[in-house]
């Protein structure tokens, strides 16, 4: 082989290694991700065709979800009416529905076969999407916005081994950390649940609300089994994830109107500590 070929070989290997090392989750550049204008447009075109494939099951899920929500709205209206009698409107605190807003988006590309999975949505900074916002679908949480282009964003999927989410057992205050360990895209693990926590198989796991990313109480999955953990004071639960990551189609991005305020307070704290 000629001398120059080794030079070219070394050059490409070094570029690839640089991409491998620097291309982590928190890179700021949108150009080297699936949310850039070229890849985004290709995926958008393709998803206009493939978007029809799962309509039947999505429709069934939505109808079930809609019925549940209608019931809930009726219940809440009744409760609200009772509270209005007891307290004047002005004294009511800001509710979750006032604090959190949703932007609907279509998933135009989705992966489940890598250890670090991402998906791409068709809304970007021009629609008010910012890095760090939570993303949910009609079944439960799906990920966190990673980088945004003007019209497209890349989301770190829940199926990404570097990502952890603060969750709890529904109806209790037992907090754990949800993560995915590769392989089956329907199974997740909730780690660091205190040993004295009580649960039943089939119990629902929901978001804890201890962050500005997700409001409290969004479904995450259902308890399947208990897994042995290295630490005696905590245990790990194997969880059947609520969202079907193989057929993600429409998602909602969560905007928290307090996010900037809370984040700036956190930054202020860090500055003071430094």
């Amino acid at each position: 082989m000629r001398y120059s070929a080794w030079f070219v070989f070394a050059f490409y290997v070094i570029i690839s290694l640089l991409l491998l090392v620097t291309g982590n989750n928190y890179q700021r550049s949108v150009y080297l991700t699936s949310a850039n204008i070229v890849t985004g447009s290709v995926y958008k075109g393709a998803s206009q065709v493939s978007g029809y494939f799962n309509l039947r099951s999505i429709n069934r899920d939505l109808q079930a979800n809609n019925a549940l929500l209608q019931n809930e709205v009726l219940n809440l209206k009744n409760q609200l009416a009772q509270y209005r009698v007891l307290a004047s409107d002005s004294l009511l605190p800001i509710t979750y529905s006032d604090r959190f807003g949703y932007v609907a988006a279509a998933v135009i590309n989705n992966n489940t076969s890598h250890p670090k999975n991402f998906f791409t949505i068709d809304k970007g900074s021009k629609d008010g999407i910012k890095s760090g916002m939570g993303v949910v679908d009609h079944n439960g949480i799906t990920g966190i916005v990673n980088v945004t282009g003007p019209h497209m964003s890349r989301v770190i999927s829940l199926l990404n081994e570097t990502q952890h989410f603060s969750v709890k057992l529904k109806g209790t205050e037992f907090i754990g950390s949800l993560c995915w360990k590769g392989g089956d895209p329907t199974i997740g693990y909730v780690e660091e649940i205190p040993r004295h926590a009580e649960y039943n198989l089939g119990d629902t796991i929901v978001t804890s609300g201890y962050s500005t990313t997700f409001p409290e109480g969004i479904p995450v999955g259902k308890v399947l089994a208990r897994v042995k953990s290295g630490d005696d004071s905590f245990f790990t639960l194997k969880v059947k994830l609520a969202s079907d990551f193989r057929s993600l189609s429409t998602v909602r991005v969560i905007k928290d109107i307090y996010k900037t305020e809370i984040d700036s307070l956190a930054e202020f704290d860090e500055l003071k500590l430094d």
């Binding site: 082989m1 000629r2 120059s4 070929a5 070219v8 070989f9 490409y12 290997v13 570029i15 690839s16 290694l17 640089l18 991409l19 491998l20 090392v21 620097t22 291309g23 080297l32 991700t33 699936s34 850039n36 890849t39 290709v42 995926y43 590309n109 992966n111 890598h114 670090k116 999975n117 991402f118 890349r154």
Partner: peptide, 30 residues
């Protein structure tokens, strides 16, 4: 060999770009 390596690197790079796996396919292809 120079052109072969260039073809290989670029194909891997494009696939990486689309599948959000920076460097993985470009290195393997090279």
């Amino acid at each position: 060999t120079n052109w072969l390596l260039t073809w290989a690197f670029l194909s891997g790079f494009i696939v990486d770009l689309f599948s959000d796996t920076p460097g993985v396919n470009s290195l393997s292809c090279t």
